[in-house]
Structures are given as C-alpha cells and as structure tokens.
Design a protein around this nucleic acid. Sequence first.
DNA 1: GGGCAATGTGTAA
DNA 2: TACACCTTGCCCA
Length: 274
Amino acid sequence: MPEGHTIHRLAAEHGRLFGGQTVRAESPQGRFAAGALRIDGRVLQEADAHGKHLLLGFDDDRWLHVHLGIYGKYAFAPVPAPAPVGEVRLRLTGGGHYADLRGPNTCELLEPDEVKALHARLGPDPLRADADPDPAWRRISRSRTSIAALLMDQSVVAGVGNIYRAEVLFRQGVAPATPGRELTRERWEAIWADLVVLMSDGVRAGRIDTVRPEHTPEAMGRPPRVDDHGGEVYVYRRSGMPCLVCAAEVRTEALVGRNLFWCPGCQDPGRRLA
DNA sequence: GGGCAATGTGTAA
DNA sequence: TACACCTTGCCCA
C-alpha cells in the first residue's frame, strides 16, 4: 500500500477520526511502550503527511512520526476494539474509533525541531499544496543519475514509490535510463504535472490507477483484467505481458535494488535501458 | 511449515 | 552493492 497517496489518506483519516480528541495510546506488542505512554491522554491537534512520512502533532508539542516502510499497515475500526491480532506496534483509540499500526519501519516521537529537519531533507511532495517543483528540477537537471533512480530519491521528490515511478515514466514516454540532465524542462514539468494528477487520484480512490480511458480493456476490446496490486496500471508487475498500447513485451530489471518495469516500445525507443 | 516477495529506507563496506 | 529491519500473505510441499 504505502506510496505517498496512502500516507496522505492516513493523515486525513487520523484528522477525521481523532482530530481534537483526547486519545488513548498503547503498544500491545510492547515495542513502542514508552512512546505510547507519552501520547496517552493527549489531544491530537494536527495530522500531516510529507511524502511517505506521517506526522501527528499532539498538544504537548510532540509529534508522532510514522513511516510504514514496505509493508507497514494501518487498520481503522469503530470501538470496541477487540484484543489485538498480530504484532500491533501502536493502538490509538478516541472519538469512537481505534487505529492499529503494524510493521512500521519507523514509529517514534519527535521534537518540533526534528520535524523541521525531516521536512528539510525531503523534496517537494506532489500531494502538498505548498510543493515547489523547482528544487527538484535543479537536482534533476544537474544529475547524471537516471530519472528512474532520481524519482525514487525522496530528497528529490517525496512520495513517489516503485509504482508511480514506473507508471509516470510510461505515461510520459520517458525511458527510465534517461539521465536527469538530458531531460528537457518541459519533459520534467509534464512528469511533475502527471504525478500531481495521478497521486491526487490515488488519494481519492485509495489505490493506484494510471490507465487512460482510451486504453482500458473495454475501450481496447480486450477482456477485463485485474492487476494483483489492486489498481489498473500499464507496466508495474506486468513483465512478460504485452504492452497495453503497443503490444511490445513489458520488461523488468533490478535498478538500485528495486524492480523497474517499462515498455521498450513506448518509452523513448531511441534510448533503451541496458 | 518453509520460502519468498512486497507500494521502503538506513547503514556498512 | 549487500544486508538488516519491520510483518503479512501467498505459493509450495
């Protein structure tokens, strides 16, 4: 689940369910026992997201910082909360609901200046109203690193993960291996604008759908299809299958430790990866 | 029941 | 580049 859209949904959900409420906090698993004790009985004042980082501000000027990593999960439900199932790092209860957090990469309390430092080390987030894509362009336009790697660098752009990375490059026809400095400014602006659209849709829908109406199975006269991560996409985890647009075989290759997916036909065929 | 992958990141070498 | 870490779910026997 967790690319930036998921975290922004989680922030909104926390604000809706717990905003202005006194919360109870506990760590059934025990690994966040001390932190839970500090949060317990405080009022949630603010719920924010920057990239993949969730920040919950409490009335003692402390912030809960959660990063889900690759498989962290939240589950929300109305009270009464049953005995926790599995490894629940943190359970927040308040206002008639509870939230269970499992498997986070990070779950810690931060002081305001540490929160400031966190924001400072993250690049612009296409989902934040205050996002300024220019610093990202400055990094990209000076870099020999591939655009595929740059998009995954959270200090360049915050919130993009492996799915949005693959899909936005496909949609914009950009070969993943293209060095940042070879992108034109127009190309970058199109990528950024598309990320804003795609990720905003993701927040609304709670899943990643990137296939344009003209390429849906119905529009193309093909049988309906469900991608196994839950959204409709062009290339992510579709290696070996025909491209939905040009029918070339979708390819995959590990890049900086992650599986990268792309279509050799649609994405700047003049520049292949490897 | 074991093995492994997964929408991620930080550290060490 | 490799590995460590967090947890679940799915595949295979």
